[in-house]
Write a protein that binds this DNA or RNA. Structure first.
Lengths: 340, 340
DNA sequence: ACTGGCACTCGCTACAGTCGAGTGCCAGGC
DNA sequence: GCCTGGCACTCGACTGTAGCGAGTGCCAGT
């Protein structure tokens, strides 16, 4: 792969121009707009090599070049520096997140902020229950055979679920149940809960066992499992920028994918390390999103990660800028959670 | 306005054909597909009158006719009967809603069901807090100066909010606060709450007054006000059916409108009587939605209404079918809530 | 190894011509 | 008086042709 420095510079120039203009870029325009110090003919030769290597391609024989997914990949990995945020953006972030009163509020503000700053579709995962620990469990009697189970996590997340008891349970027993589950479970991570919950059932007094069993089932089935991951979404209207040129003319598959929580979680929820993840076009496992790119990262108080957030846009996006924004927002949100 | 029966029949035929084919309909095709018993020439004369009255129009001089918003309005008001649901649809509704475990679950299932059946964008408002009454209020101490206020409404809705207390409050006082707010507020409608809450502050013992004041503020400000209305949305991908022919080629304004909760509430939240409301194109107050129609209705246990639900689609939609589906789903959801 | 020149490709636009669906109008018939 | 068949007309959709120009690949020359 004889990709000398100049060829890389050419690739970078192509990506930058194409992202800016949304039009295939030719050799002549390239030398005019960037100081490459060589003639169009030379650039053409370089382009031929780049095309052969699969970094760029020609939409039509007589058109300029367009980066391929592979080209964007190389650009992101080796040719771009993360743009520092403008002071204006910095201020926007701070102003937007100050005054959040609630976890719900934080998440909603964040997703809107992210959509607005990047001008793309923003996705924010609520702090994952699997990565939270229990701060408090509350049992509220609704009737003699129904309880409302409310779980408050240390991340501020609150989940509730109706529990149908197999038999009527008197108020005193509810008090006992409440005390028991709190004694055993408060402070423990939900992902490590199953054995604890089992022990809870085994150790409870006979007259509580029936209620405790259904209670534990609900806890395990609905609160611990992935099913209860939550997602906030904003900025879908941004998909229509670039008037159907992006996404090869059909928003349909994208919108469909965005309606599936499972898909969204896959996109932004699997961020383990604190690095920012960039998925470009094809690299995406979801078929519907092969015309899109995703920039995502984890967030959380301090160094721990409790959830993911990111944005989705056309492969033709401003990667350095987007990456910088996503990171910055994640950091601010993490700080906000840390104060909690 | 000399709109005799035949002219109305012609209008009905035009609407039905246009909705089915999505193409301007001409006089010849009309007499072929409907038994009007007259010749194309006669139909043409009728069409000329209908056009003069503003019920239909010609997109181009040499094209067929297309209904105007006014034409759809007349069609909906006087020319269509509500289609009975097919047994298949009936079954789909039942199957879909059975097994809902939670209010959240009910709402999510409902909105997806509605989107799927009507093949349009579905919107479901959570039971309005203003129309609910308090079943229980729970105060969970997070720290000495922070409480989590959890409100459970009789509609099954659960809202929580963090309360920052002005001064540390010992556990015993929290118990007192909990008892007081529950004694006073349980059973009352939230819309009628303000005086009760005020009384609560006035009557509380001096050492509780500070905490009670902020508590009441939170109750009033965030739980009672419109701000806390919630909305579920599904089926945005359906906007892309009809490949950009609907919505005059731009989804942008629609998607923007759908991101604004306030707008959605205006659309479906203002349903007072139990009748189904149909807003066609221009009739809509939201500028962004002047190319769309909305069919909405209220739902609730029995005859009371606790929230709204509906669908949004192109003005060119199957009104009778959509109206029938929306009504049926609303009724089923109401029944489901009544069982609660 | 780079550059200028040149022939070539091919999409885009404009233009002319044809086709046909659909209309409006009018004279004639029930 | 209302309906009908006929006829001339309009105009969008489609087709084919031609010219333009951006952009390329290649080659010979420095």
């Amino acid at each position: 792969m004889g990709l000398d420095d100049r060829k890389l510079a050419v690739l970078r120039a192509i990506v930058e121009d194409y992202v800016a203009t949304q039009e295939p870029v030719g050799s002549k325009a390239l030398v005019e707009r960037h100081q490459l110090g060589v003639s169009p003919a030379t650039v053409r030769n370089d382009m031929a090599v780049l095309e052969e290597e699969g970094y760029i391609r020609q939409p039509h024989t007589s058109a300029g070049r367009v980066p391929t997914d592979r080209g964007y990949r190389l650009f992101v990995d080796r040719l771009s520096r993360v743009k520092p945020l403008s002071p204006a953006e910095r201020r926007a972030i701070e102003r937007f997140l100050v005054g959040a009163v609630d976890l719900d509020d934080v998440v909603h503000r964040t997703v809107r902020l992210l959509a607005q700053l990047t001008r793309q579709v923003a996705v924010v995962q609520y702090p994952s229950l699997a990565r939270s620990s229990v701060r408090h469990l509350e049992l509220v009697p609704i009737s003699t055979t129904r309880l409302m189970l409310v779980m408050i996590a240390d991340t501020g997340r609150v989940e509730q679920r109706l529990v149908e008891l197999p038999a009527p349970v008197p108020a005193d027993d509810v008090t006992d149940l409440r005390r028991l589950v709190n004694e055993k479970l408060v402070g423990s991570r939900l992902s490590e809960t199953p054995p604890l919950v089992q022990a809870l059932v085994d150790e409870s007094a006979p007259h509580l066992r029936g209620a405790m069993t259904t209670l534990s089932t609900v806890l395990l089935e609905t609160l611990v499992e992935r099913h209860e991951e939550r997602i906030a979404l904003a900025g879908t209207a941004n998909l229509t920028r670039g008037g159907l040129l992006d996404f090869q003319g059909s928003l349909r598959p994208i919108l469909e994918a965005l309606e599936e929580e499972v898909v969204l979680l896959k996109l932004i929820g699997e961020t383990q390390p604190s690095t920012t993840r960039v998925l470009i076009g094809d690299e995406n496992e979801v078929d519907n999103l092969r015309a899109a790119s995703v920039v995502s990262t984890g967030y959380g108080p301090g160094a721990t990660i409790v959830g993911g957030l990111g944005v989705l846009g056309p492969t033709r996006m401003d990667y350095p800028g987007t990456i910088a924004t996503v990171r910055a927002v994640a950091r601010y949100v993490g700080d906000l959670l840390a104060q909690n």
